[in-house]
Design a protein around this nucleic acid. Sequence first.
DNA 1: TATTGTTATACTCTATAACTATA
DNA 2: TATAGTTATAGAGTATAACAATA
Lengths: 154, 154
Amino acid sequence: MEKREIDMGSLDDSIGYRMRRAQIAIFQDIISAFAEADIRPAQFSVMVLIGQNPGLNQSEVAAALGIKRANFVALIDSLEARGLAKREPTATDRRSYALQLTEAGQSLLDDLQRVQAEHEARIVARIGAENRAMLLELLEAIAAGSDSDQIEDA
Amino acid sequence: MEKREIDMGSLDDSIGYRMRRAQIAIFQDIISAFAEADIRPAQFSVMVLIGQNPGLNQSEVAAALGIKRANFVALIDSLEARGLAKREPTATDRRSYALQLTEAGQSLLDDLQRVQAEHEARIVARIGAENRAMLLELLEAIAAGSDSDQIEDA
DNA sequence: TATTGTTATACTCTATAACTATA
DNA sequence: TATAGTTATAGAGTATAACAATA
């Protein structure tokens, strides 16, 4: 097979294209790292949020993560079915649930966060700690600037 | 509605999570900017590659963009159906097509690249030109380092 | 009237397997 | 045997509309 050199043209200088490729690369690594636990990135993010903020309802968690209420149902269903999270009735509002991790959920989350920290360390090894801090700032500035913080109805 | 402060926990320090949110934000802006032309980011990337490297076949373009051969068919179909790209027979291999932009395709691509340049300029206005250059380097380093350059069979 | 959770549904993206015609 | 293009298909992820229960 002949290795033709392909000119990526303006894509090479496009933050959008480069970021998409980098994000895919990172997610594939994380998905591999979480594969043994059979946890997807979205499930992980939900577990982190519930673990850090027990008692939030579904709409609050979904909005914080940029997930539609309707799509969050199957997500939390899957965690509950595996005994990792639970819906507790709330005293003040019988429409909503207070979300919590189970003990098993907290235990698995601890493991996953160690795995994630190792993954993050692998990136730091490649780009350096200072560049990581700068990268986080730039990503935050870009995400905050666009109009995509809105979720639903808004 | 009460604005509860939600602690994002380890997600706040996660390059993966932050990059995902930033990438979504950028793509939503680009999708909006390309909406009038009814062109999706993937279609745009194909047009850029064909415009820059006329004569490539489908497998080559697909591999360069990280798209499966099978999924590329509908993509190039859509461009051809709109008269933006065409499949030309090749002299040496009757299995494959030499891909080219039509005049209309090149003309639209010129417009889209102006739109993209404006979008890129909006980001630069927010983070600065030096930070943009650094960001591109970091994204490249991250994308190149992961094992996700492989496509198909590999 | 508005909100929470839910169902149904559709559309895009992505992944795999298998086929055909050519090489 | 291997490759280019193709089809069929299945699985994620995401979007909208509408409903019941509750506020």
